[in-house]
Design a protein around this nucleic acid. Structure first.
Length: 960
RNA sequence: GCGGAUAUGGCGUAAUUGGUAGCCGCGCAAGACUUAGGAUCUUGUUCCGAGAGGAGUGGGGGUUCGAGCCCCCCUAUCCGCACCA
């Protein structure tokens, strides 16, 4: 009789041995096919891991181990996203250096991770705050700074090329991503001084410095990216955020908008996540149209628009550009709206309206983001007194200002079609402006818009009252109107994106320093050979008295251009020594390219070698939370596309397949204290009226299967020392609710406790058993006993291992299990895989002696899921090499064929069957099989089938 | 408002992808072995009904010999975006 399943002894023993023997170290290259399994690396917070964190890691570990058993060379690394706000906030409060707390937290994370038995190659660990790592973050930033996006080439090109182009041709023929359209000749360019040239180049750089409206969070003392702000509040901390114009570094991610949309076609992600990204990028097709102003010039009213516009280039005419996705509705325009920030407002407002307009613009500009968003439904605006001319109808239409038109999208000006846009409709109703129907669901059928309760926004139906497009379908009308506009030279087809450039400066300490210094207020990159530019020490982590970012406190923070090194700030003379940039990079900087660094993590000369990236290509499987859908996952794709343009990355998309593990919520337990007697606690089932009791959160660690450990409860909190209980059946039953997992609700489940109690293998299996990996679910420890019992049962099965040949029954069970587990793992259905193991052991344990022929393959199947127990049993069966080097068993179809016909159904003289057949069965052999089976059941009764409808793997519809 | 997803026993879930709904586990009930058990094992457990039997996958319709699965319309919950023209 062998020992009991002693996981407490087995697991550390194997973990040590795996580490000592370097079992999980991966080499680049070799004969075996490659596979890259990646987890989103964690931010090491002070709270340590809770059971939600390892969920994705366990899933990816299972897949990585599976792929390895399948003969792949698997890259499965782990590291830390170590820069971030919490460590810095903690530093401001305590003075503790963020590097120190980060180091401690990492040590704690590592300890917790190690206990779970992952197959990470820790030799490849990266940390974003490590100078050897952020050197390459800074390097990439410099490349972004030194490149521009050429729309003709469809890729990033060196800014030096652009300089050369400007010197020879000026901006002629240039189509590049930029902040604003520029137009100058070669002569002009060559006349300009250095500063002027630099200013022009800045307009095109992929990393650029500009005054832009940013999300300023006063409480955090920093700006935030759009994805870091939700509903006018910061994601971290929930502090109010305001719009503010600031000089900031940005990444011109908008240049890649179309490629970011297109790339989604090539990747294997869930539709919902692709949709989230598409929405975030917000591509919309439409038209840009110039509307001439109807203003007195030299005492005359402008002539009719059509005649006027056809004679001239649109720009010299007093006119303004709008963007619309509904060019077909241009005949329904009854007013125009400008955003309050529009530059034209000052020029066009008539003297009698001036005061009112100014008042409105001021009011609108000073509103906070939050106020504006909260009052979206409120209509506000003001008439400028000016008119525009509809270029197609030559009608005179009033121009309004309203904050429902946003400065940051399109051109900040719209043509309002109240009949077919709900916002224009609300505005028109509020100001009593005319509404004209130009689209109808049925041809030539119209109704009076005055009777409408809402606008007709759908892009379906037919154009009406619309001149030359009347009677056309909406889609046709759109094309026809754009054609006409282009022909008239007053507009063109265009595409707009909701995506904004990514603001890249943070007024914080704990982040990557920009490798940038300022000469004459113009930024220059420090030479690449001088990287990394290390984060300096500071006396304080707060902003300086003058409002500079924390790096303003650093003494040793100036750039000596000649000696190419960092020197004391006191030496700044703006001749040879210049001030360095004071802000740092945001969290997504370090996490945007880390997957590439894992391929070649110790390379001191380059980001990663060509050989390494050509070997690994890109991430085959990426596992992580969907909350990164509009942040990290967009930035990383952009980063990778840029490196692809530089010829460094070899695949345009970084993450081929992506699995979003669901969020684990907490399952809180409650005790119910009587309102009349503060020491009396009533078991849940005995409560007559919930109003008589106060529910109190109770630590889930002193509750088991909703049964309270009353002694530990009394000891838990001095307030409850004298607690008395009204029990049911001798137990105190707690209530429960699903809430966020948090310390304050006492519902945090620490994986260490579970490992100590049940072992890592049980924890791994149970986390998978809980439900589909992708699904959000509350953590519930009830039920962990079930999988633990399974492992004990599995262990016991090896008591009777023998060399005899397995029975046919056992072989059938084995091969069914191999097939099912293989299928389940391939489709990431780990919960059903665990069930399959349980079914298998339930069926096998009936026999007294288990053949090695069955147990060996079974052990290998279990190895990815429960590596410690599998390894132990593997060695007990006499193997001397690690089970990681075993070969995944394949199944024999011979054992899988069902020899019974299922579900015969009779109707109208036909008989329908379903039968399981081998995959390669053809119609003849299938017919043979079905006849054989059916005869046994006497369903065919000796008759020949007249017609058989054959479906591979099944036969249906046999006509007698 | 727009977009996406989900809905199955007391609970977590499963269903060979259109073929006997409820696998596996928890919980519960009964029993066995035990000085004892929060150990182990056996049996039962969708609901109603004593039973025969009937009902049943959020609700309503449809396609089909056959629907948890496909189509249409509701309802509820969760998530993402939100005055994006």
């Amino acid at each position: 009789m062998k020992m009991d399943y002693n996981f407490g002894e087995i697991e550390p023993r194997w973990q040590n041995r795996w580490r000592e023997e370097g079992v999980y170290h991966v080499k680049n290259g070799g004969e075996r096919p490659h596979y890259y399994v990646l987890d989103m690396f964690p931010y090491p917070s002070g709270a340590g891991l809770h059971v939600g964190h390892p969920l994705g890691y366990i899933a990816s570990d299972i897949y990585a181990r599976y792929k390895r058993l399948r003969g792949y060379n698997v890259l499965h690394p782990m590291g830390y996203d170590a820069y971030g706000l919490p460590a810095e906030q903690y530093a401001i409060q305590t003075g503790q250096h963020p590097a120190v707390t980060t180091e401690q937290n990492i040590a704690r994370y590592r300890e917790q991770l190690d206990k779970i038995g992952f197959s990470f190659d820790w030799d490849r660990e990266v940390r974003t705050c490590d100078p050897h790592y952020y050197k390459w973050t800074q390097w990439t930033f410099i490349q972004l700074f030194k490149h521009y996006y050429d729309n003709v080439a469809g890729k990033a090109l060196p800014i030096a090329d652009l300089e050369q182009r400007f010197a020879t041709k000026g901006t002629e023929g240039l189509d590049a991503a930029c902040s604003e359209e520029m137009s100058f000749t070669a002569e002009e360019w060559n006349r300009w001084d250095e500063q002027h040239k630099q200013k022009a180049l800045m307009n095109y750089r992929l990393a650029y410095l500009a005054d832009i409206p940013v999300n300023w969070c006063a409480e955090l003392g920093t700006v935030l990216a759009n994805d870091e702000v939700v509903g006018g509040l910061s994601v971290r901390g929930g502090y109010p955020v305001e719009r503010k114009l600031m000089r900031q570094w940005s990444l011109r991610i908008t240049a890649y908008a179309q490629r970011l949309v297109d790339g989604l076609e090539q990747v294997d992600w869930t539709d919902s996540l692709k949709e989230i990204q598409r929405n975030w990028i917000g591509r919309s097709e439409g038209a840009a149209v110039w509307f001439p102003l109807d203003v007195p010039t030299n005492g005359n009213i402008l002539p009719g628009a059509q005649a006027y516009m056809s004679q001239f280039d649109p720009k010299p005419v007093p006119s303004f550009e709008i963007f619309t996705t509904r060019p077909d509705t241009i005949f329904g325009v009854t007013f125009m709206v400008l955003c309050p920030e529009h530059e034209l407002i000052g020029q066009i407002t008539t003297p009698d309206r001036k005061a009112e307009v100014e008042e409105y613009v001021n009011w609108a500009k000073n509103r906070s983001e939050r106020e504006r968003q909260a009052e979206v439904k409120k209509v506000s605006g003001v008439f400028t007194g000016a008119y525009a001319v509809n270029p197609l109808t030559e009608e005179k239409i009033p121009i309004y200002v309203s904050d429902y038109v946003l400065a940051g999208y399109g051109t900040g000006a719209i043509m309002a079609v109240p009949a077919h846009d709900s916002r224009d409709f609300a505005f028109a109703r509020h100001f009593n402006l005319p509404i004209r129907q130009v689209v109808s669901l049925e041809k030539d059928v119209t109704s009076d818009p005055a009777t409408w309760s809402e606008s007709m926004d759908a892009k379906t139906g037919y154009s009406v009252n619309s001149g030359f497009v009347s009677g056309m379908k909406v889609k046709e009308a759109m094309a026809a109107v754009i054609d006409k506009i282009e022909e008239m030279g007053i507009g063109h087809r265009t595409v707009n994106y909701r995506l904004r450039d990514a603001i890249f400066s943070r007024q914080r300490y704990w982040g990557e320093p920009f490798p940038i210094y300022y000469k004459d207020n113009t930024p220059y990159a420090i030479p690449e050979e001088c990287l990394p530019l290390e984060l300096p020490e500071v006396k304080e982590f707060k902003p300086t008295a003058t409002g500079e970012p924390p790096l303003g406190h650093a003494d040793y923070w100036a750039w000596d251009e000649q000696n190419r090194c960092v020197v004391s700030k006191s030496k700044v003379d703006n001749v040879h020594v210049f001030p360095l940039e004071l802000s740092t990079m945001p969290g997504f900087a370090g996490s945007s390219g880390y997957y590439l660094r894992y391929m070649d993590p110790h390379n001191g000369n380059e980001y990663f070698s060509k050989g390494a990236v050509e070997y690994w290509q890109n991430v085959d499987l990426y596992v992580g939370g969907a909350e990164h859908g509009t942040g990290h996952l967009i930035y990383a794709r952009f980063w990778n596309k840029f490196l692809f343009d530089l010829g460094m990355a070899v695949k345009e998309e970084p993450f081929q397949k992506l699995i979003n593990q669901g969020m684990i919520q907490g399952r809180s337990n409650f005790v119910y204290r009587s309102k009349s007697d503060k020491d009396l606690f009533i078991s849940k089932g005995l409560i007559k009226n919930m109003d008589d009791v106060t529910p109190i959160h109770v630590d889930i660690n002193i509750v088991d299967n909703d049964v309270l450990d009353v002694d530990r409860f009394r000891a838990w909190n001095p307030d409850f020392a004298n607690a008395r209980f009204e029990m049911e059946d001798g137990k105190y039953i707690c209530g429960w609710e699903v809430e966020k997992m948090s310390k304050s609700m006492f519902n945090v489940q620490n994986p260490d406790d579970l490992v100590a109690r049940y072992g890592a293998d049980t924890l791994r299996l149970y986390e998978m058993f809980l439900g589909p990996v992708e699904q959000a679910k509350p953590w519930d420890t009830n039920g962990i006993e079930g999988v633990h019992r399974f492992l004990k049962k599995f262990w016991r099965m090896y008591d009777g291992v023998c060399d005899a040949e397995a029975s046919k029954e056992d072989m059938k069970i084995l091969h069914h299990t191999i097939k099912k587990i293989t299928d389940d793992v391939e489709r990431f259905s780990f919960n059903t895989a665990v069930s399959t193991f349980m079914i298998c052991t339930n069926q096998l344990t009936d026999s007294k002696c288990h053949s090695r022929q069955v147990l060996e393959p079974l052990t290998i199947l279990l190895a990815p899921f429960a590596p410690h127990i599998a390894e132990e049993l593997w060695h007990q069966m006499g193997h001397t090499t690690t089970i990681c080097d075993a070969q995944w068993p394949s199944f024999d179809e011979h054992y899988l064929i069902e020899d019974t016909v299922k579900y015969p159904v009779q109707f109208n003289g036909k008989m329908r069957f379903t039968i399981d057949l081998p995959a390669d069965a053809d119609q003849t052999s299938a017919l043979q099989a079905i006849k054989g089976c059916a005869e046994g059941q006497r369903w065919l009764d000796g008759k020949e089938p007249k017609k058989v409808v054959f479906v591979p793997k099944k036969i249906i519809n046999i006509v007698l």
